[in-house]
């Protein structure tokens, strides 16, 4: 079975309780489901855990689905809700933690996790984190296009948008990505210059703190 294409008769069999059909169906959709999760989940959340949550909901609620044609948009909604729920939990955790240590006034921006900061040195991860900051309407199609090259048509069907809109969003999303990265580089350069102004040359050379 070709990846990403959802066979309606397979969906109907899965709705009717055919577990083999459900297994096949999951195999054909899990990569794009994971990409939707990537687009919506908080950076700190483990993707595999969230994917398992979606798989569980698929197993539990598949038989409630009335229309096989609605399967893709239903599953996408399930994935988005799972990611958003995790986002709310993460926000609550962060808030309580920041209140506890009294840091909320000092650090208003939401920092990436420690792991991500370490991986940040990796160039491709830097691009990925920048892509995660795109507006959601652009983020989803841009990331889906990277998922073993889903076609514009397949992405359009999944997001329920015309192919021309998908094409335009991917094109604009990529330009916005270039602009975000260029801006980040400029800011990093400015920070370095600022640091050089503040710290005497001798201390910079010896690597010492000011």
């Amino acid at each position: 079975m070709e990846e990403y294409w959802v066979n309606e008769s397979l969906v109907e069999s899965a709705i009717a309780g055919d577990s083999d059909a459900l297994d096949l169906l999951w195999t054909s959709v899990r990569r794009w489901v994971a990409t939707i999760l990537l687009a919506h989940k908080p950076n700190e959340t483990d993707l595999d855990d969230l994917l398992q949550v979606v798989a569980m909901q698929l197993c539990r609620n598949m038989s409630d689905l009335r229309d096989a044609k609605a399967f893709k948009s239903w599953l996408r909604t399930v994935a988005i809700n799972a990611a958003r729920e995790e986002g709310r939990k993460t926000t609550r955790r962060k808030r309580s933690m920041l209140r506890f240590v009294g840091m909320d006034q000092q650090h208003k921006s939401t920092p990436a996790s420690a792991v991500e900061r370490v991986e940040d040195s990796d160039e491709s991860n830097r691009v990925y984190l920048a892509a995660k900051s795109l507006p959601i309407g652009y983020r989803e199609p841009v990331l889906l296009r990277c998922t073993r090259s889903m076609s514009y048509q397949q992405i359009g069907e999944l997001l329920d948008l015309p192919v021309t809109t998908i094409e335009t969003r991917i094109a604009r999303g990529r330009r916005m990505l270039r602009e975000i990265l260029a801006q980040q580089e400029k800011q990093a350069e400015n920070r370095k210059l600022e640091y050089r102004k503040q710290v005497p040359f001798a201390q910079q050379a010896s690597g010492g703190a000011p």
Binding site: L47, S124, N125, Y128, A131, L143, C146, T147
Partner: peptide, 10 residues
């Protein structure tokens, strides 16, 4: 680079 990063995530 983005495709590489997404592949790694998946």
């Amino acid at each position: 680079m983005l495709s590489t990063a997404v592949d790694r995530q998946l």
